[in-house]
Computed example of a mutant assay.
Amino acid sequence: MTKAEFLDELEHLLAGIPAQDRQEIMADYEEHFAIGRIQGKSEAEIVLALGSPRLIAKEMNVHYHLKQAAEKTNFGSTMRAVYASVGLGFFNLAFVLGPFVALCAVLVAFFAVAAVLIVSPVLILLEPDNDLLWTLLLGATLCSLGVLIGVGTLSLSKLFYRGVLNYLQWNLKVIRGKRR
C-alpha cells in the first residue's frame, strides 16, 4: 500500500468525524510519513509500521466519541461512544454492549417505578370507598417514596454514565497497548 492509498483510505474511514478534527488526524499521519522518510524508510515500511487504516480509524472514532460523551453528558453521546467501542472487536461486543444494555434497562425500570409511585396518589384518590385520612397518608407515602427512588436513580444514572466513560477509555488504552 502506498502513502496516498493509506491516507485516502484513512480519510474515507474517518468520514464520521468533523472536518477540522479529521484534518488534524490526517496532518499527524502526514507527519508520520515525513518522519519515516527522514529516517530512510520506504512508504511500504511506514505503512506496515502504522498498521491498518481501518483499525486506526476505529480507534480514532472511539476516541472522538468518548471525548464528545465526556463533553456532552447525554444518552445519545454515550450510546455513540459505546457503539464505536463495540466496533473494535468481539470482546467489546460481549463485555461492553451486553452489560450496558442490561444496566440501561435496570435504570429505565427504576425510573418507571418512581413515576408510577409519584402518580399513584391520583389513582388512590379515584377509589370511592377509601377513608380520606388513610388515602392521603398512603398517597403522600407513595409519592414521597417515588420521589426518593427517582432522585436516587438520577444519582445512580450519573454514576453509571461516568463509569461507562471511564471503562471505555480504559478499554481503548488496553486495545492500543496490545497493538503497539
Rank of each mutant, 00 (worst) to 15 (best):
R22M: 09
L125A: 14
S52M: 07
L93M: 09
S42R: 02
Y83R: 15
A49V: 07
I46N: 02
K58L: 12
L50E: 04
V62C: 14
R54A: 08
V119P: 02
A115Q: 10
R37Y: 12
G146T: 07
L123C: 02
T73R: 15
G98W: 11
G51D: 07
M60Q: 13
V106D: 05
L7D: 03
I35T: 15
M26H: 14
G87L: 02
T2K: 14
T73M: 08
L125W: 03
L125S: 12
L156T: 07
F95N: 14
P99Y: 09
A115R: 07
I56G: 09
P121K: 05
S155P: 00
Y83T: 10
D8M: 01
T73V: 05
V174Q: 12
E11K: 15
A114G: 15
S155N: 04
K41G: 10
K158E: 03
S144N: 13
Q68F: 05
E24C: 04
A140E: 06
M79R: 12
V101T: 12
K58E: 13
M60N: 05
P53F: 07
V47G: 08
F100Q: 04
I17K: 01
A19E: 11
E59V: 02
M26V: 15
R179K: 03
F75Y: 10
G36D: 09
F91P: 00
A84S: 11
A140Q: 04
Y29C: 13
A4M: 04
A81L: 00
S120K: 06
L66W: 04
S155K: 13
L154I: 11
V108G: 05
L10R: 04
R80F: 08
A49R: 06
I35C: 06
L7M: 11
Q169T: 14
A15D: 11
L7A: 07
Q68E: 14
V147W: 03
S155W: 01
M26C: 07
Y167F: 15
N130D: 06
E71K: 08
E31M: 06
G51P: 06
G89D: 04
S155E: 01
L137S: 03
V113M: 04
V82T: 13
A34W: 05
L137E: 09
G177Y: 02
I118L: 09
V151T: 08
V164W: 02
R162W: 08
V122R: 14
I149Q: 02
R180P: 00
Q20L: 10
L132I: 11
A81S: 02
L10N: 05
Y29A: 09
F6Y: 15
A84W: 01
G146C: 03
P121I: 06
K72Q: 13
C143W: 14
S52W: 03
L154Y: 14
A34S: 12
